[in-house]
């Protein structure tokens, strides 16, 4: 089934990758927030399953496509129904402020009277599960390490090889509805990389963010618009903790520290 005619369009508003601490609303965020929706189609699979969250593909007027997940369509897990779209946005904010460049641009927006998360569509992508495992862990090792650290920071309760994508721009982490999960639930990561050197850019970015009270405050304020104070402050503490570990252990997270990677 083909939803849209013509050639697919990237979100044309090109921007440089985020630097750590970038806090202004980006051009892509503005576009996702304000461009008129030309068409919106509920995707097969979720459409028919009343137990699973709804997902729509939307076409933006003149510029690109996006994935829209309405709050009203959140049916699972039942404990979190109605909250997942906020976690999608919060995860993007963390990614943006830390300059990890893993999460496609994500905003909260109303579509046809429904509020939900709107995320830039990742073109020409392959899902992790479609790639040979050895190849993935060789060719994208640094990106996977970055995603591991990111998943700890956002306390991701649902990472697996069907919710990250790969294309010519690199690795893209998606599907963050089950982030900032309850304290007693351990993060569910894709792979861990204890005792391996972490990529230089995340070491640098975490240190830079930890050294900037201003950036921390900006992220905190942005997250408080959608999450409660306890959740936000726990996240910021995890960022600080991770930055401290990487500084103390020269860019490595020792396996001996695993029990201390807490909420």
């Amino acid at each position: 089934m083909k939803f849209f005619g013509g050639e697919p369009q990237h979100l044309e508003t090109e921007e440089k990758p985020h630097s750590a601490g970038e806090n202004l609303e980006t051009q892509k965020e503005k576009a996702l927030q304000s461009l008129e929706i030309e068409r919106s189609v509920k995707l097969i699979g979720n459409a028919n399953n009343k137990r699973i969250n709804e997902v729509f593909l939307v076409e933006l007027h003149g510029d690109g496509s996006a994935i829209f997940k309405p709050a009203s369509g959140e049916k699972f897990p039942f404990d979190w129904a109605g909250e997942l779209y906020k976690n999608e946005r919060a995860s993007y904010l963390v990614d943006k402020f830390l300059g990890f460049n893993l999460v496609p641009t994500t905003v909260i927006r109303e579509v046809n009277g429904e509020i939900g998360s709107m995320q830039e569509f990742v073109f020409e992508s392959t899902v992790g599960l479609e790639i040979d495992d050895k190849l993935l862990k060789t060719n994208y090792r640094d990106a996977l390490k970055k995603m591991w650290v990111f998943d700890y920071i956002v306390w991701n309760g649902d990472r697996h090889d069907a919710n990250f994508l790969v294309n010519s721009d690199g690795l893209h982490a998606i599907d963050h509805g089950l982030t900032f999960v309850r304290e007693h639930i351990q993060p569910s990561i894709y792979e861990d990389f204890y005792d391996e050197s972490m990529p230089e850019d995340i070491i640098r970015n975490l240190e830079q963010f930890s050294d900037s009270a201003e950036q921390q405050n900006l992220l905190r304020q942005a997250m408080l618009e959608i999450l409660n104070e306890r959740t936000v402050d726990a996240c910021l503490k995890r960022i600080e903790f991770m930055a401290a570990i990487l500084k103390k252990y020269k860019g490595v997270i020792p396996k001996s520290l695993k029990p201390s990677l807490n909420y």
Binding site: G45, V55, L57
Partner: peptide
């Protein structure tokens, strides 16, 4: 399967 594949990029039917 439908709980695992629900991102939109990969979806599973009922």
């Amino acid at each position: 399967l439908s709980y695992n594949f629900k991102s939109g990029y990969l979806n599973a039917s009922d």
